Amino acid sequence: MNNSQKAQHLMDVTYPGQAGGDTFRLLELLAIPAFVLDARGHAIAWNRACERLTGVPRYEVLGSANAWSCFHRDPRPTLADLLIQERMDEVGALYDAHAQLCDEPGHLSAEGWCDMPYAGRRRYLAVDVSPICDEHGHLAAVVETLRDMTDEKQAQISLEQLATRDGLTGLANRRCFDDTLHAEWQRALRQQQPLSLLMVDVDNFKQYNDAYGHVGGDECLRRVAGAVAKEMRANDLVARYGGEEFAVILPNQSLKGAAIVAERMRCRVEQLHLPNLGAAKQFVTISVGAATALPAPEYEPSQLLATADAALYRAKHMGRNRISLTRESDGAA
């Protein structure tokens, strides 16, 4: 008996009779990718559209309990598996979004990224599952249908990036900075951790624009932004605050640590050796103001921002191309 015959035999045994056979033939013709798992989690149907989506022919899946391997590299249950195994409390941790399709229990919808190891491409899939019960109300099988929403998801991500990214430098924009500062302040307050902030300004930028024009000025800002961003940790955020000014959020970072980061930034920008004919030092440099706070309920993030801004102002008036730290009189913790 070849693989196709084995698959048909399994289908006939599981759902004997003309009605069952017709149901599976209709499923086979569906343009929507779909598969069926029995009450033990074994695949009993895998239509052609599912073959095209996953790159896995049905004879390799039917009868097995590893349908998940067609969608993920590492062991991870499908939505149908979760329903069969009564593990629906795990859906939120495994999928980006999920919802109940109707008032009937077990009818669920979820969305998330899948590795698609056999197809060789990562896809964002919307998944619907529905239980099939016998005449006694016992679960007999689960149908899972899939929709490839990769293009729509990527378009959504692009729109979100437009809303949170600065078009010139590619850094976070002012809106993203404000939202992140508020969120990190609340997190630091809960965890009683320090929060540091750097305000960065390109020295003598007006003279640079006068000498090289706006096109040259834009390229200068892009180069400086790239240099500053290279000093960031995974959880840090660097944003274009406005004009030639940048802001850096350093979660769980002491003032001493913030000063080290600031000095590395200053050196990295200076080492770009971007000529600035309008500046005394002949190269583009930055000034940095650093501040740190241990958030408390009676304080606001705006106070940390004001303190870092005052430190930046001081660095500019002390001769530029330097960093300035919080003073006790500035009121930061």
Rank of each mutant, 00 (worst) to 15 (best):
D210G: 06
I157F: 03
F246H: 04
L197H: 03
K230W: 01
P194G: 08
D134T: 07
L139S: 02
Y241H: 14
A141L: 10
Q193D: 01
D151E: 14
Y241F: 15
T150A: 03
L195N: 07
T145R: 10
Q191A: 14
P194D: 09
R233L: 12
E144F: 05
T180S: 14
D134A: 08
E219G: 00
L198Y: 02
A188D: 05
S130C: 14
L146Y: 04
L146F: 04
A140Y: 00
V224M: 06
A247H: 00
F177G: 03
A141W: 12
E144M: 11
R147V: 08
L146M: 13
G243A: 12
V143T: 10
T169P: 02
G243K: 04
R240E: 05
L195P: 01
I132E: 09
R222T: 13
H138T: 12
T164K: 06
D201E: 13
E244V: 08
G213S: 13
Q191I: 04
P131A: 12
S254R: 09
V200E: 03
L255E: 15
G213Y: 08
A163H: 07
H138Q: 15
K153F: 00
R240I: 08
E144G: 10
V215F: 03
L139M: 13
E144Y: 02
N252G: 01
D151C: 05
V238K: 04
E184D: 09
V228K: 08
S130Y: 01
A141E: 00
L197D: 07
L181I: 03
G243F: 13
R147A: 14
C220W: 12
V215A: 10
R233T: 09
A155M: 13
D134G: 14
V228H: 07
E160S: 12
A163L: 08
Y212T: 00
C220G: 07
Q186M: 10
L162Q: 15
E135L: 14
G170P: 03
D201A: 11
I157D: 15
N235H: 11
V202S: 11
T164E: 11
V142S: 09
H138A: 14
A259R: 10
A229Q: 13
A247G: 05
S130N: 12
L198S: 05
L195D: 11
E152G: 01
F246L: 15
L159G: 00
S254M: 02
A188E: 11
G167M: 13
A247Q: 06
Q186R: 04
L221K: 08
P131R: 12
G213R: 12
D166V: 10
T164Q: 10
C220T: 15
D134F: 07
I132G: 15
L139Y: 04
Q156C: 06
V228D: 00
V129G: 09
Q156V: 07
L255M: 14
Q191N: 10
